[in-house]
């Protein structure tokens, strides 16, 4: 997708390249930035948590692998996992193609919505991701 690198406005990001896309007040989707996906190369495998799991901000919620690299995924905020993108198991390439859209990883219910304010704006993130 030609514009898959453009970070949507309702997205906030972390220094470890995860994003949080806020869809309504206490629900959000988590994935990794397009920049991070590009750095990893073709994604071949992703390991995601189970629905219902509670994970603290900064803890790992899964891992992601390309042919030559592997990386842990860190929670941008404390939350409960309410849905997992099972399509990624069969088609991990969605993360490369459209990380902010079909390439989302987990849907969460935020434990502490204030934590969102500690994350980076797209503009701030663009400073570190280049």
């Amino acid at each position: 997708m030609a514009d898959s690198h453009i970070i949507p406005d309702n997205v906030k990001l972390t220094e470890t390249h995860e994003y949080l896309r806020i869809d309504d007040d206490d629900r959000a989707r988590v994935g990794i930035s397009h920049f991070a996906a590009e750095q990893l190369g073709d994604i071949v495998f992703i390991e995601l948590p189970e629905v219902g799991q509670r994970i603290e901000k900064g803890d790992t919620f899964g891992s992601i692998e390309s042919v030559k690299a592997a990386s842990d995924l860190y929670m941008p905020v404390s939350a409960e996992v309410v849905a997992v993108n099972t399509q990624l198991t069969e088609e991990p390439e969605l993360i490369n193609d459209n990380s902010y859209g079909d390439g989302w990883m987990i849907e969460i219910s935020l434990s502490n919505p204030d934590e969102v304010n500690e994350l980076m704006t797209p503009a701030q993130y663009s400073q570190i991701a280049q």
Partner: peptide, 13 residues
């Protein structure tokens, strides 16, 4: 294949 499980990529993990 699946070399990401191995030490030269994952190191201590």
């Amino acid at each position: 294949t699946l070399q990401t499980r191995e030490q030269h990529i994952r190191r201590e993990k």
